[in-house]
Computed example of a mutant assay.
Amino acid sequence: MSRGLELRAARVRYGPLEALHGVSLIAPCPGLTVLLGRNGSGRTTALRALAGSVPVSGGAIVWDGADVTRLPAHERARRGLCLVPDRRAVFGSLTVGENLELAHARGDFTAALSAYPELRPLLTRRAGTLSGGEQRMLAVSRALLSQARVVLVDEPTQGMSPAVASRTYDLLAGLDAGVVVAEQRLPPGLRGRAGRAVVVYELRRGEVVFAGEAAEVPAADRPGPAG
């Protein structure tokens, strides 16, 4: 039996427009998979299709060898899939502490504060008042607390400092789960990462144009120098 989450020739339509044109990919579980692409490439749609938050008009979604194409998003979540969207990923009207309590079955969020000590002085703040980077820390820490079998994250490090972004990828790569992230460019540090290989798919206009390991990503898709 395959241990992973797959799109098999998946097609997704938004009204008359087709956003994915028969995309196939395999995200190993456990393992880290990166979906690369510019805005409009289909990377976010692929992530949502895996989560079940958008339906596929063709093809299939397979999880650990079982067809889950018709399984609704809440059932996939119940089976251990966690989606962190790029927007509205936290409960803005709740405090940081309340957000974290809800993410863990027993309300224990000690691990989140160990991962992101920056959140400790913010525990009584409403999540909606946090900066973009702070909200991403909170959203990712909620995913870490969920102990999910599969974690899907759209632009996990948006708004974070380089040091916190690097730590975030260390945390995600260290999970005993299938982790799939959507990014515009390959994050620094993943190319030469020791240990488990990082799988990369690049999407362009709804199609996969590259599939391989992080070390094989074409130079044009590597992060450039800051400037």
Rank of each mutant, 00 (worst) to 15 (best):
A111Q: 10
A111M: 07
L113P: 05
L113Y: 06
S114R: 11
A115F: 11
A115P: 14
E118R: 08
L119T: 03
R120E: 15
R120K: 15
P121F: 01
L122S: 04
A127W: 08
A127H: 05
L130S: 14
L130R: 13
S131A: 02
G132Q: 09
G132P: 08
Q135K: 12
Q135E: 14
R136C: 04
M137D: 08
M137K: 13
M137Y: 10
A139C: 07
V140T: 06
V140Q: 05
S141R: 02
R142C: 11
L144Y: 10
L145M: 07
L145S: 05
S146I: 08
Q147Y: 11
Q147W: 09
R149F: 03
R149G: 08
R149N: 01
V150M: 02
D154L: 11
E155W: 03
Q158I: 14
Q158T: 15
G159P: 13
G159L: 14
M160K: 07
P162M: 10
P162H: 12
A165T: 04
R167S: 06
L172M: 02
G174I: 07
D176R: 12
D176W: 00
A177M: 13
A177C: 13
G178M: 03
G178P: 04
V179L: 01
V180M: 08
V180E: 05
V180H: 06
V180S: 05
V181G: 02
A182L: 01
A182R: 00
A182T: 01
Q184A: 15
Q184W: 14
R185V: 14
R185T: 13
L186P: 02
P187K: 02
P188H: 09
P188F: 07
G189L: 05
R191P: 10
R191Y: 08
R191G: 07
R191M: 14
R193F: 09
A194D: 13
G195A: 12
R196Y: 06
A197T: 01
V198A: 10
V198Y: 12
V198D: 11
V200G: 00
Y201E: 08
E202R: 13
R204I: 00
R204F: 11
R205N: 09
E207H: 02
V208Y: 01
V209L: 01
F210A: 03
F210L: 04
A211T: 04
E213N: 09
A214W: 06
A215D: 14
A215N: 07
P218D: 06
A219M: 14
A220W: 10
A220S: 15
D221C: 12
R222G: 11
P223D: 08
P225G: 02
G227L: 11
G227C: 02
